[in-house]
Design a protein around this nucleic acid. Structure first.
Lengths: 197, 197, 197, 197
DNA sequence: AATGAATGAGGCTTCATTCAT
DNA sequence: GATGAATGAAGCCTCATTCAT
């Protein structure tokens, strides 16, 4: 059964569709959506230029599919843990750890998502979903920092989110030399043990 | 007579250049460098397509000029205050306040600079200068947090920088609803008054 | 199956390439390389503007391909006869006859090659090959006229070459009324039967 | 008086108009008419781009003026001698010597004229005059070679003209190493002293 | 006479997309 | 599924030309 499943998995991984998405993700993240051509993607994926249009209506549809998948994947990485965790300190810690784990596993996703945030024109189709996720996160942050006894949970949540994103931002652009572990621990500390004036 | 004529030409040039740079900055920041066309810039600047090439060798040269200017401007906003400030708490506070002031004054600059960080291909010409600035900032951060008596100045400096950038990141993408003031104050607090376990 | 498909593609390619090269040759020769636009070539070849770039990297690459082919073709027309001919009179005669045959068969080639000689900027890529051929011809001329017993073989060879090229020059520019046959015979006579003072 | 005339001459030589024509001639000859831009001419002439249009209606009008002048100049160099010379041998010799003198004095003129011969589109305006000159030359050649007692004066004249043009052709393209003097003498010999079988 | 800013058509080239096979 | 030839719109850039001064 496992062999079968692996076979299916492998055929999925090696299918043309997967190779297209993989190549596109890499290139979009590296050079930007607008500066990546279908030819380049096809060459990187080892397929013909026309084949992409068997799977996606257009270049933008391809991008959307990739972003959608990365969203699903991101959600999966969180839901499990968030549901199981009760204590706010643990939840906060979990959010950080899970984010870090996600970024470490697929930094390219994160890079692409961030770079897309700067392209107003692109991805208007997904804007609602993104907005929804953002609101959800703000609410979650609020909850956590209220539970932690802060008097300014909104600001705490916003700075918390900013610190995480900023940390990833620097990590992604740093060519491997960033001490992510150390910064992450400091971040957890800073928000878990407030000095409570 | 010639002087008069030259003055006239200069003012013509300056006005056109300004309009071109202004339009380009807005569009590059809004839609990304690669997705902004010369036609669009010309239309937004109210000039003909060809005129840009009287002032800049190429689209990329235009970008470089803009980035260069924004750099100069950014440096100016900092140098004065940094030199005058002595106490580390004040310096840290100054860095935050000056950054916030800069971002509030010209958010588009910041947006452009950040979005360019995600376009490896573009702007290789300026990479050295950027790297230099980055190193300078890391060193400054180290200095400040050492002076503040932290045992882990490197992580503090990195998280500090990450928090600032992340805050701006969220602010820039937030369409005006971001409580920058509150988050800024919290940020200063968090790094100025360490809980010193 | 794949072989069949590939054969079909190849014939498609070949047909398009041929039409492009044919049209380009005609136009380059008629109006000059610099004054011929890709649009004109595409129109004359009955293809779209973009298609040329499936086959040639640039306008200049197209020119180079054409020149290269004409070179190969020219060489072929000579090598056979030169190798077989022994007596210097016959060789000289052969050179003239073969040149005339070549020019009569593809006058456009000759016109293009000559016009390119006046465009220093263009075709620097092929300069070495051209120089090589020139030197070869000078040496051959020297040989022939030495064998013919002339005391001034260098000048004879140079004037011989000049006469041939000049004759073609006038022929090409003459709109069909040039008595090439008569001039050719006179040329052979003049250089074969020296008056030997 | 001489001083005055020289001053006038100098001012003519240095006038903007002269400088424009000079620069244009050089550039047209070197890079071809189609590949020379008004900007380049203005830069080479040390004047502003617009000034050319004070003197010439268009780029093509400038070319025409240059060609016209070179024509006048060429005619002047011939008429005097042709009228004075009686004996056909001397006339033939004179034609060669005068041509060589002309080419040696202003090789650029010759280069330009020749290169223009390959641009059908350009200079249609001057075509009639060129044709007239050509016919005149053919007639003159005919006369000379008839007078010299040749039975085939037409072919002699055509080959004679071809040899001259071919010689110049090679000379112009040879970067200074061409033994023009020797070839010229041989040419005169070849056509003056026929072997008369 | 002279300048150079400004224009817009047109040149070369790239690219998303289509389609016959 | 898959190919790659073919298209044409659009991109960047150059250039002859105009015009206010």
């Amino acid at each position: 059964m496992t062999a079968k499943r692996q076979a299916r998995f492998k055929s999925l991984r090696d299918s043309s569709k997967e190779r297209i998405e993989h190549a596109a993700l890499e290139l979009f993240a590296k050079k930007g959506y607008g500066s990546t051509s279908i030819s380049q993607i096809a060459r990187a994926a080892g397929i013909s230029k026309g084949l992409m249009y068997n799977y996606y209506k257009s270049k933008e549809a391809l991008l959307e599919a990739i972003v959608q998948k990365s969203f699903e994947w991101g959600k999966e990485m969180f839901t499990a843990g968030v549901a199981q965790t009760e204590k706010p300190e643990d939840l906060l810690r979990y959010v950080v750890e899970a984010s870090v784990a996600a970024v470490l596993e697929k930094p390219v996703f994160w890079k692409l998502m961030t770079s897309l945030a700067f392209q107003e024109e692109v991805l208007k189709a997904m804007a609602p979903e993104i907005e929804k996720l953002r609101k959800h996160n703000v609410a979650l942050g609020n909850e956590i920092f209220t539970a932690l006894g802060y008097t300014n949970p909104v600001e705490q949540a916003l700075l918390f989110a900013a610190s995480i994103d900023g940390m990833f931002f620097h990590y992604i652009l740093s060519d491997g030399s960033y001490p992510l572990e150390g910064v992450k621990n400091l971040l957890i500390d800073k928000f878990c043990h407030p000095y409570k004036e």
